[in-house]
Write a protein that binds this DNA or RNA. Sequence first.
DNA 1: TAGGCCATCTGGTCCT
DNA 2: AGGACCAGATGGCCTA
Length: 187
Amino acid sequence: MIKLEPIEQNTNYATGSPTMISTAISSPRSNKRLRKASYPMKAINPTQLLLPNQITHSPMEEPLTSIDGDLSRLDHQEEEMQNLPRLSSSKRPRLTYNKRLVANARERERVHNLTAAFEALRRVLPMYGDQEKLSRLSILRIACSYVLVLGALNEMDFSQGENAYTLNETFHMLSYTILNELKRKKS
DNA sequence: TAGGCCATCTGGTCCT
DNA sequence: AGGACCAGATGGCCTA
């Protein structure tokens, strides 16, 4: 089995800079993956949807080509796909091959942004630095506890109807949550 | 090897 | 009409 090397993290991407979207994925574990698709797959990098001056290159990436060029090479496949039977009973007609590729790229970019947002959230958690990686679920749980601590620090109750916690209580809740999530990670 | 996690694809629905 | 968002399915990677 081939072991992929991590893609270098692009911090601009991870913080969600609107002017730069890279295909570099923020998590060291999350290398580019390919998946068998029901369509004959020809993935388009999200960067291929950007203006040329917005594109950044990762050392791991293949040279980029324009989406137009990419799509034009698929024209013959498009014609073939048009002849495929409709697999869906949706009101909307099934997307053509090229439009499916573009939609896939948009969805990929959207999920990358989501991942970047999780990474940005992880970075502001109190335990940032000691932990290499937390699951998204752990990030959310710890973040919730952290918000309560910050609220208690400012003498504000963010718990929405729950009992207001003292700073001491929220701090213990946060510690407990962190320990629990780390334990969950190990077990 | 099983299970957790996550990237990706896909089709459905909502919204502008 | 088409983009955004969402959830389900699938499969790769990693760890215990």
